[in-house]
Design a protein around this nucleic acid. Structure first.
Lengths: 256, 256
DNA sequence: CGCGAAATTGAAGACACTCAAAGAGTGTGG
DNA sequence: CCACACTCTTTGAGTGTCTTCAATTTCGCG
């Protein structure tokens, strides 16, 4: 929870240059959504890796459109530990709804990050002039909820091995689907093994032991933020993915 | 997961007669929201305790406005176990968004239940004619997400004792806040000890042992669906509630 | 009153945690 | 450019919480 994550600073994303956006493959990069959001923003903000967008318990009067970089949401506990709730990737909306009464979680930049800030009055103006934006946001929030539901069943009902495998798979798939052109089985994740533990309800030490096994079995490697998928099929197997409905949180049907 | 929950059938809620609604204390009972929802429903449906509103993996083409009764959302696992994701109380919206690709969870009635069914086309008509409804639904979904976040940090980072205490507290508070007139410390919850385990990532056996301790310490009792809060202060303590922001999922600020 | 579901208890074992120390890798400052 | 400082990772030993398995009792409902 220290505000210094130097090892991750280099990781960066540029949605404007995103190939997927150019050829319309990336369904997240909705030109109109981004465009309308831009109409009502008060400005952009650059947040350095390790710094916070907003803090647990503090009132918030704006939402943030994440353009570039990774952000993690977490709840701090009284004893100093924390529970990571969500890893946010570019083109997501953070901090909805804003609340005077104090946010229920913190948002920390994992890499250098750029966000559009849409203050509360901008938000109500946007909903008034572009009612369809509310449904878009409802769909986005709903995806976050589905992902949280997925994490719930992982943490609640799976072994450490399955949890770790599942998280690596999730982050790999979510990050990769934004650049459909790239098909490397290796990538950088701006998180530590401790972070994996904080996400999956494990200690960093035990995450390390699990990773040692997965590496020994030549399934997947995660070492100093470098993720390498060696055997995708067996990783799916190790993750205990339900074939009936794998990665349901991927679907992007705005519904209605 | 058996479709027979006879012990719970008697539990019933009638929002129309709800005192809180009458004097405006219950912020959930929004007359206009309910009224507009009714305009676009295809009809009402009564679901017996134990039956399902919709099933994991099956496509869904409607959302449900829960008027009366308790519903639980859960993910079934491959080995037959399950993870309960959410307990829905009257005046919540279930099944948003509907999806062709198969729902990511099941919805089972814990008591006899009445719902309004709003089919997909009714939903789009509603959003077109009443744009503010999208924001309402966004706010509702957002509350569900916050509650899921709360459960995540409970399951991930707390002891069995804290989890059980926290869940009993949550259900007590959520159910009670709908009838502000009643102040009994005793109530019926339409769930079993096994269900508590399925919610908090524990076995029913261990939930029972934890409840034995809490009963011995005269903090709280839960026996055959009867919940009795003996010592609220020490229950808060046992739950390890963060005084900085207890029950953040209670807030009903629609934002925007 | 009897059947089935839910709750209760015991004993044994497994998985993940704690504590502690050493090693590896990265970025910074000299 | 190199060495230092710090974070992150790795490993071991011992412990404890929670699970598994199985049997028994209590309770609700017909």
């Amino acid at each position: 929870m220290v505000d210094s994550r130097r090892g991750a600073k280099r990781l960066s994303f540029d949605c404007e240059k995103c190939r997927a956006r150019a050829d319309g493959l990336c369904r997240d990069c909705r030109p109109e959504f981004t465009r309308v959001l831009a109409l009502f923003k008060s400005g952009d903000r650059v947040v350095a890796a390790g710094r916070h967008l907003f803090l647990f318990g503090e009132p918030s009067s704006a939402i943030y459109g994440l353009h570039d970089g990774w952000v993690c949401l977490y709840k701090p506990l009284l004893d100093g530990r924390r529970q990571i709730l969500h890893f946010a990737l570019p083109n997501s909306v953070l901090g909805f709804p804003p609340t005077e009464r104090g946010m229920a979680y913190s948002a920390q930049a994992l890499t250098d990050v750029t966000v559009s800030v849409i203050p509360r009055n901008g938000l109500s103006a946007m909903f008034r002039e572009h009612p369809e934006m509310a449904m878009r946001i409802a769909a986005l929030v709903s995806l976050d909820r589905d992902l949280a539901f997925d994490h719930l069943s992982n943490i609640g009902r799976r072994t450490a091995r399955q949890r770790v495998a599942h998280l690596l798979l999730e982050l790999f798939v979510r990050a990769r689907m934004r650049w459909p052109g790239f098909h490397t089985e290796e990538m950088l994740l701006p998180i530590t093994q401790e972070d994996i533990g904080d996400t999956m309800g494990l200690t960093g030490v035990h995450v390390n032991r699990v990773l040692r096994e997965l590496r020994r079995e030549r399934i997947v490697e995660f070492h100093y933020r470098r993720l390498r998928i060696i055997d995708p099929d067996r990783l799916l197997d190790a993750a205990g993915v339900d074939p009936r409905l794998a990665f349901s949180w991927l679907s992007r049907t705005p519904s209605g």
